[in-house]
């Protein structure tokens, strides 16, 4: 220690935002954050998956019945019912705005009603009168005006005909699905808010336990942004660890549930299956979680630092 302090350098570059890792102690998996974020992410993925499945289910069902009409011939006498059904089919088939007409066979109708009415193994005149059904598909969507036009067209040739849009039958189902979709969206929002709150708490706690180090960095010329970056990077790593683990757990649950629903063999449930977009949305969840966690950590730390000199 005889010479002048030669290692002391001149012209040190001005601050360029360095934020070396390791300035704050890290506790990684030992801390609760990756676990909390992982559980939140799994629940978020499941809720989002449910929302997407419901949306797909509703959209597929809606597309399927968009131009659909059902004509019922509500006539007690079997012969008259058959006659009016034939006339109705003929009238409908001749219309340009009708794309497809299909008389639902009586056997098919009976099979549909069998769970409620039992087997109608009696002479036709003794059997419970069941309406004749005609499945109609319009070219284009069903509108109230078109519905009225068809009713008017059938009024004279088939006075017992009742025309209903298929969407009308399923309106309560769609309403219920829409409610469930909102519920799923609400759950995703609540889980995101809970994650942000957990990150806020964790950032405050980390800031408190590292207050001395933060103060030293401040006094050495560290900026708020630089200190915030240290915390946001740490929380970001926690969020990445927890987020991808949560995604894996959530996807496994969705696949398992999907298999069980697929076994039901219901056409409507099959309409809820995922496309590439849905998988992409679910895969993006951890990334959104990381962004949310880092942003929350940054804002929390910056707001706390603003109260220091």
């Amino acid at each position: 220690m005889n010479a002048a302090p030669s290692p002391i350098r001149r012209n040190i570059p001005r601050f360029a935002g360095s934020d070396r890792p390791g300035i704050m102690p890290q506790s990684r998996l030992a801390g609760p954050m990756p676990w909390v974020i992982g559980i939140m992410m799994a629940l978020t993925v499941i809720a989002a998956g449910a929302g997407l499945a419901l949306r797909n289910l509703a959209e597929n069902a809606r597309a399927e019945i968009a131009g659909g009409l059902t004509v019922q011939i509500l006539e007690g006498g079997p012969a008259e019912r058959a006659r009016q059904a034939e006339v109705a089919v003929a009238v409908l088939s001749n219309r340009e705005d009708v794309a497809e007409v299909r008389r639902v066979p009586d056997t098919e109708v009976e099979a549909l009603l069998e769970p409620w009415l039992g087997e109608q193994d009696v002479p036709e005149e003794d059997a419970i009168a069941v309406p004749a059904l005609i499945d109609v598909r319009l070219a284009g969507p069903v509108t109230p005006r078109r519905l009225d036009e068809l009713r008017a067209a059938l009024a004279a040739p088939a006075p017992s005909a009742r025309v209903d849009a298929q969407a009308g039958w399923l309106a309560p189902v769609f309403d219920a699905i829409r409610s469930l979709q909102w519920l799923a969206l609400g759950l995703v929002g609540l889980l995101a808010a809970t994650t942000a709150a957990a990150v806020w708490l964790a950032a405050r706690s980390a800031l408190g336990s590292n207050r001395e180090t933060v103060e030293i960095i401040h006094l050495l010329g560290g900026t708020d942004g630089q200190i915030a970056r240290i915390f946001q990077r740490s929380i970001g790593l926690d969020a990445a660890l927890g987020g991808f683990a949560g995604l894996a757990l959530g996807l496994a649950t969705i696949l398992l549930l999907g298999r069980q629903f697929a076994r039901l063999g219901s056409g409507m449930v099959a309409g809820g299956s995922f496309g590439a977009f849905d998988w992409a949305v679910l895969a993006a969840m951890p990334l959104l979680g990381i962004v949310l966690a880092m942003l929350t950590a940054r804002l929390t730390v910056l707001s706390a630092l603003r109260r220091m000199l």
Binding site: P5, P7, R9, F15, A16, S18, I23, L220
Partner: peptide, 26 residues
């Protein structure tokens, strides 16, 4: 090294002066 890192000095320019300084203070 902390003041240099806070000031954005590249890592390659930190090692030697810090080591020299620590040597210098024994």
């Amino acid at each position: 090294a902390l003041p240099l890192r806070v000031s954005g000095v590249p890592e390659s320019e930190i090692r030697k002066p810090v080591a020299d300084m620590l040597d210098w203070v024994g």
